[in-house]
Computed example of a mutant assay.
Amino acid sequence: MRLSISHTTRYGFSQPVAHGLQRLRLTPKSSHGQSVIDWTMDFEGVRLEAEYDDHHRNRTALVSVEPGATAVTVVCSGTVDTADSAGIVGEHVGHLPLWHFLGQTELTRPGPRLRALVAGLDAARAQPLETLHALSTAVRDTVAYTIGATDVGTSAEESLGAAQGVCQDHAHIFIGAARLLGRPARYVSGYLMMNDRIDQEAGHAWAEVHIPGLGWVGFDVSNAISPDERYVRLATGCDYRDAAPITGISVGAGQTALEVRLAVAQQMMGQ
């Protein structure tokens, strides 16, 4: 499937910025299951300082906010060919060893609620894939998809307690639980083509777990499936903070307003 993506992010500031830096992980890479045909990233209000692959092999751009800017706009667009591999991404590559993905983070660290969720799984008799699919179902049944109930700083344990969250929260809970089961797990940020609409409110997030003999396998808890040809992977990491599309700091900006416009659609081959 060929997917056409247009993604605009705009930050408006109530006061002129004195100094600011932003780290952008908004460039997909060709890998198992996806091939980037073309991709561009344009800026307004910032200057490109450096481009590099980070420790997770995410293509990263470091930009500085122009002094006095009252708005920053980042526009990404391109086309990506994808294939359905039943969620299987393949063997581990990169700078970090697999054991690194067993360590819990501030956002995935288990408390009593997450431990109880894992204890309810019949992991002793089930095969790894069966256990992980059962875990995905348990997370989705426990935490209702609710926009606005959590934010980027909400931990897995907190969203479990609230029984509400979004794809980011589902991924953090699933990752923390998978690590409790002794499985290396990581967070994925990216895009998902929705079947019922082109325009979307935000990007998407899901999880991947490393299983011997298969490699990394994806689990989209929010949609109760493994990623297929409708998904485009942008970045991976131990949690949201490692794979966030945009992170940064600013001095003197005052209040910040965020506006996102995202469209993901299937493009006919040859167009």
Rank of each mutant, 00 (worst) to 15 (best):
E208P: 00
L117W: 11
I246P: 05
E229F: 10
L234C: 02
P97S: 14
T105N: 09
H133K: 03
V72H: 04
S159L: 05
L3W: 06
D53I: 03
S64H: 05
G213E: 00
E130I: 07
M193L: 14
A69T: 06
V264I: 13
L181Q: 00
S6T: 07
G111D: 15
P97H: 03
R113K: 15
D81M: 15
R261N: 10
S4C: 08
E158S: 10
A263V: 01
T154R: 00
A116P: 08
M194G: 02
L262W: 12
A18T: 15
Q271W: 12
I211E: 11
T40V: 01
Q255S: 12
A162I: 13
D81F: 12
L129G: 08
F174M: 09
V251Y: 14
E91N: 12
Q200K: 03
V264C: 09
L258I: 12
A144T: 10
S250Y: 08
H56G: 11
F174Y: 10
P67A: 10
R125G: 10
D54V: 11
V232D: 00
H92K: 09
D122I: 09
Q271E: 09
S77M: 13
L21C: 06
I211Q: 07
Q271C: 09
L107N: 00
L21W: 12
A123W: 02
G254T: 04
R186C: 01
S77T: 13
W39Q: 03
V188C: 09
S189F: 04
V75C: 11
